[in-house]
Amino acid sequence: MLMRIVLPVVVLVAIVLPLATSGWDAFLTLVWAKALPVLGIILLLQAGQVSFGHAMFFATGAYTAGFVIRAIPGGEIVIALAAAIGASVVAGLLVGVFVVRYRYIFFAMFNLAFSMVFYSLLEKFIHITGGSDGLSIPRPEILGQAMERSEYEFVLYYLALALLVICLYGVHRFLDSPLGHTLKAIKTNETRIEYLGLSPRRVLLIAYIISAFLAGLGGALVAVFQGIATPEYAYWVRSGEFVFVAILGGTGNVFGALAGSFVYEYIRVTATAYVGDTWQLTLGLVLLVIILFAPSGLVGVLNDIRGYLGKGRREPTPSGGKQPSGKTEKQRGEEQ
């Protein structure tokens, strides 16, 4: 239902919108771009794993795109994005090989530790990265075309939208595949996965690399849109935001990424004036409220309302909203 009706409708509206009105495209470009790392977090959450460090891949993508654009004359965006994807996949592989050996606390904290190290390296190596001022990125060409700012942003809007839709659909299909279902099985019984002849670590590594790829692509898009990459892109607060948006949107469905990203950006843009100093505090409080009272997020709440109204069949929410049914049966041995 979500894939067959909601996605096409959203895409259609998104395609028509910039032609009908102006003023939304800058906002929405960021929504599309920032939904990508959130999608990566949702993917990992299917296996019950949280990463507090995915901003490192976001920053990897952003800085790689920046370096490439600065290095080649004119700076071609397609090459920059391809390089960003390549770099984040490699980074995802390198970090992933280590972190997929661990679960839960260790998984979350190792990701955090790696990202903190990366953050401080970005700050320290000033001659390469520009330090805490960041790396300024000139406006690249798109397929060899140099563009005016408005024209560039217009094209970037559609580019980000197209990439997001492809990724949403791709992850959706992946989660429905045998491998995707094995990923979900990691959450409940790794011993059985081993005894089916499969490696939970390898399955999680695949998901981890995909999530790094998504975060890197998102970071590259944000960087080329804003014309800058700063160490703050790798900061733990940024990683926390990704997790926050995933929980806000709902982790049971890839649409959570889009819904969460939209609502989050909207609140951020409109509420900063009022809660500027207490932004992080507000996020923390909302996160607490969602986990304690509406653990399936926005998509889950929408489903609940629809179920309540008796319209349509309730989409299953595999990870959200359920009390753990077999916590004692859960694998704990692996992590220790």
Partner: peptide, 9 residues
């Protein structure tokens, strides 16, 4: 002896 299943699926 203790069934090992993917309980959420």
């Amino acid at each position: 002896q203790i069934p090992q299943l993917f309980t959420e699926q």
